[in-house]
Design a protein around this nucleic acid. Structure first.
Lengths: 333, 333
DNA sequence: CTGAAAGCGCTAACAC
DNA sequence: GTGTTAGCGCTTTCAG
């Protein structure tokens, strides 16, 4: 492997000149620059990442802490990851995947100076990783909202606003008995913050609009979805609208409604909270509030990068939801 | 951040002693070792990854080249990733995610000495990354089989064997007209190697067993699955068994069969090729041949690690398929 | 606009 | 069983 000294020699300049050509941190005359660039190309030179990190305290690597096991939803995870990967690439950053549940992986990566910043997904309420993140010299961005955000930057969809928009949309169509199918009971028991925010937003708006709202969990399986549909229909007789925040259960819930002879949106309006492509690609395109996975991923990277260059205080960014009307919601009969 | 010299000073030993305590590359007396370990703990010392990489030519990082966009199936991808992440952890390795389609990312990561080895998923036939992998000083392991495997280690499920086992299982149950629903047409057009191998294995066995076999692609959507079912039924009248190698279409294909009044396995036996949990968690547990995503991921890491320590020649490993009989296949009536 | 040279923190000979 | 020290390849003052 060619080193920077080889390049300098080949170009007839000093190593520092080569370094500055590469970094652009000081002006270089056109002829010098092109000689250096030619030498770089000729030798197929690539800077050694470790040496660079040692000398500059910058790795150009971003840690991504991702839950590979108890993922809320693989699809959504992939959207986040994809948004993060793209944005990182755009900033000339690589992504180091950290999947260990405990903090040891994070600790090594952070304190071993392997990365310049961290993005953490699916943080739990009393996550052992939070203190490690807080003490790190690198900026950290969480996707989601932990209980105590002090000193940590967070980005997430504004789920309270998701809840209220959903209820408002249906109330404006004249619906007065609305059901909500949420994520699996595991998420309810963990008291996941997005769920609480969604419910709070929906309930507040339901009160304001004077409509009835019933919310229950819903497992991701075919059977679970059918049970949830049956159960909410029993619990809320005369229900005419359903909000479903559960991508995996969505098709099964709809199938169950059909089985029960309910037409959509004739008998029951359905509003999905899910990634836009999922809603649009159902047999009946669904009115939906997007879960903008890629956008959140991008925002997380941008926040991290910002904090690297400047050093801003921590900030929480909640993305406003977007409701797209398609064919599954309509006026109550 | 404490350095190795700080630790040495605190423990009253030389830096090399600290280094050797850490690496275990030479014997250290018990008392010295414990003094060093105490100093490490007291100072919260973590070795600087860049410095270590520079001095030792080892990063303890593994590149994982993953397709985030045109993924065959997000679920299967996640299984691979999860197997790889676990195995890497086990070998004290971290994972660097490379998602760029072209070779620039790979090139930087490999020639910039950011990683000790690469694992590449979803390689295409004339992939621009293949030459980069072949020229790299680091060992490379591909998941899947490219056209020309010279100099590259590969690991994959033995799809030919999957095809023949599936047909044999059904033939032994007395079925003589068998259909096969494969992946979406995109994969057929790319002439993906796993598909060709699956078909070749299935056809050879069908010949041998003197049974009829018809194979068609199947899109992942609900509509696509229904069309594929209708089409294969039309194409192969009297068909009594169906092999489905398409996780996303699976539930929809089954639903369509039901709609058509076909009972499973009474009228039609269904054999799925998919991850074990998917098969087991359907409403009717499906007889299936596993796609052992995690095992393949682990095998890939093991092969890479082996090639780091020793330097073995390239090797292709095809994992034998496992057929698990559940409730969706039975004797022909 | 360009060069010289002092480290960055660690590993691995080479000494003893 | 332990210490000394020369690099690893790069960035960045400090000089000119």
């Amino acid at each position: 492997m060619a080193t920077i000294d080889d390049v300098a020699k080949a170009a007839g300049v000093s190593t520092s000149t080569v370094s500055y050509v590469l970094s652009g941190k000081r002006p270089i005359s056109a002829p010098t620059r092109s000689r250096v660039e030619k030498a770089i190309k000729d030798l197929g030179y690539r800077p050694h990442a470790g040496a660079r990190a040692l000398a500059s305290n910058r790795t150009n690597v971003l840690a991504l802490v991702a839950p590979l096991r108890a993922a809320v939803n693989v699809n959504v995870i992939m959207l986040f990851v994809s948004g993060i990967a793209q944005a990182a690439q755009h900033h000339n950053y690589d992504v180091l995947l950290v999947t260990q549940d405990d903090a040891t992986g994070l600790d090594r990566v952070l304190n071993g100076s392997m990365v310049d910043a961290v993005i953490t997904m699916d943080v739990e309420e009393h996550d052992p990783r939070i203190p490690v993140l807080r003490n790190a010299k690198q900026p950290a961005v969480l996707i989601g909202l932990p209980r105590d955000t002090a000193g940590l930057s967070c980005v997430d969809l504004d789920f309270a606003s998701v809840g209220s928009s959903a209820v408002r949309h249906l109330a404006e169509l004249g619906h007065t008995k609305i059901g909500l199918l949420g994520s699996g009971s595991a998420a309810w028991e963990r008291r996941t913050s997005f769920l609480e925010r969604l419910l709070q937003g929906a309930r507040t708006e339901a009160n304001y609009q004077s409509v009835e709202l019933a919310a229950i969990p819903c497992e991701a399986s075919e059977v679970g979805a059918a049970e949830a549909v049956d159960s909410i229909l029993a619990q809320q007789p005369g229900l005419t609208a359903l909000i479903v925040h559960n991508e995996s259960a969505l098709p099964h819930a709809i199938a169950r409604l059909r089985e029960l002879g309910k037409s959509i949106p004739g008998d029951i309006s359905v509003l999905a909270v899910c990634p836009p492509d999922v809603a649009a690609n159902q047999p009946l395109p669904l009115t939906s509030i997007d879960i903008p996975g890629e956008a959140i991923g991008r925002a997380a990277v941008d926040m991290a990068m910002n904090r690297l260059d400047n050093d801003l205080p921590a900030e929480t960014r909640l993305l406003a939801p977007v409701l797209t009307q398609r064919e599954s919601t309509g006026p109550v009969r």
